[in-house]
Design a protein around this nucleic acid. Structure first.
Lengths: 214, 214
DNA sequence: GTAGGATTAAAACGTCCGTTTCAATCGAAC
DNA sequence: GTTCGATTGAAACGGACGTTTTAATCCTAC
């Protein structure tokens, strides 16, 4: 698969795998170029530096993931008004999990790199990630706010972080054989969590249950 | 605070900070020993190697965190039978968040190191972590199963992973001024998530709400 | 006070790193 | 078929790394 791919792509593939498995600083350009069957100088020629290569690795998958999520979100918003909370969450979770269907667990690899990036304090990396990611998070937050009116924005953002943390952590874990099942669980779990923590005066579909329960 | 601490402790403190901020491989022993006001050879003398130093950093905080969590869990289990779900979750979440009260955000630092460890594929590290951590997770899973009978073990373990992911991700985030408030949100969120995804025939306290709701 | 183990200090070891350089080779356009 | 930019190849650069070694210093026990 990577034998007849361009040097550029072979380097990206090899870097993604090694960054995920070993970490950025633990991976050398010599490892990468050897795995990619390319010359050592090729990384600096095609990407400029090791750091720029990391950003390129991010951009490739994140662009695809963002697009998949937003397209699916658009469909959800077109299908019902107000939208169904579970469908919004599926639009966020399933495209990520679908990445694991690649025959080389690209999704899992990418999530591991993402975890490392979250843990990092590197300002440049954080800014680059935020620039790629923030607008997607905002659109999902807006959609959820529509599905669950009465939620305070600050709480909603926090709970979205809960979802991101749970999703990232789960996908990065070693065994992900039944990704579909886990994704469904995560959607159910998050939907229940969101419905259970909307502001006291709930106006959502869970209203009847909450009012009667206590 | 660290001026009159032993060389051993000063190195541990400096290593924890630097490993969290920069990552394991991005941190050099020269950085660590300089920050700890110790000689370069001190790390190898006191800990044996850089890798062994990392394990020592883990062990110190993880031991304290495990003990705090289990003690609090014991109190919860003594107080009520069956135990209250929220109290169990608090016993898991609050001791972690409490680490952030240290004047140098030790908790946040430690969570970042933990995130990196989760992302890592290093077998030795995973085994060491699991050996320190697994029994705590098991005890909490058992406690939650008691509070929420009817939950399938496999689902419960998954949902605990959701909680761990959300907690780790949230604590590692940059700003954690109102840790208490976030911890409460996370407990509420997780409790609702757990109650909302128990097996169809729910026997828990959420029964009335669920039966009447639909 | 002095012996002897524990700790610290300073220097050196060999290795690998990211990057740069410069020549060789390729591939499309004329 | 030659030209010329794009790409690859091979080698070298200076520097930083983890670890080891050897000597100096400290500290406790007698």
């Amino acid at each position: 698969m990577s034998a007849n791919a361009s040097t550029n792509d072979r380097i990206l593939d090899a870097a993604e795998r090694l960054f995920a498995e070993e970490g950025f600083h633990a991976t050398s350009l010599r490892q990468i170029t050897q795995a990619a069957d390319a010359n050592l100088a090729a990384v600096n020629y095609h990407f400029g530096s090791k750091q720029a290569l990391l950003l390129a690795v991010f951009r490739r998958r994140l662009d695809a993931l963002n697009q998949a999520r937003l397209e699916r979100l658009d469909h959800v918003l077109d299908a019902a008004d107000p939208p169904v909370l579970e469908d919004i969450l599926k639009a966020f979770v399933f495209p990520a999990m679908a990445l694991t269907h690649g025959r080389h667990h690209e999704g899992q690899r990418f999530m591991r790199i993402l975890m490392r990036a979250f843990a990092d304090q590197d300002e440049q990396l954080h800014r680059a990630l935020s620039a790629e990611y923030a607008h997607v998070m905002r659109r999902f937050a807006d959609a959820i706010a529509t599905a669950l009116p009465g939620t305070e924005p600050v709480h909603l953002r926090r709970q979205l972080d809960f979802l991101v943390g749970a999703l990232t952590h789960t996908m990065a874990e070693s065994e992900l054989e039944d990704a579909e099942s886990i994704a469904s669980d995560l959607v159910r779990f998050t939907a229940a969590g969101l419905r259970g923590t909307v502001q006291p005066i709930a106006r959502s579909g869970a209203r009847r249950a909450m009012e009667i329960a206590r």
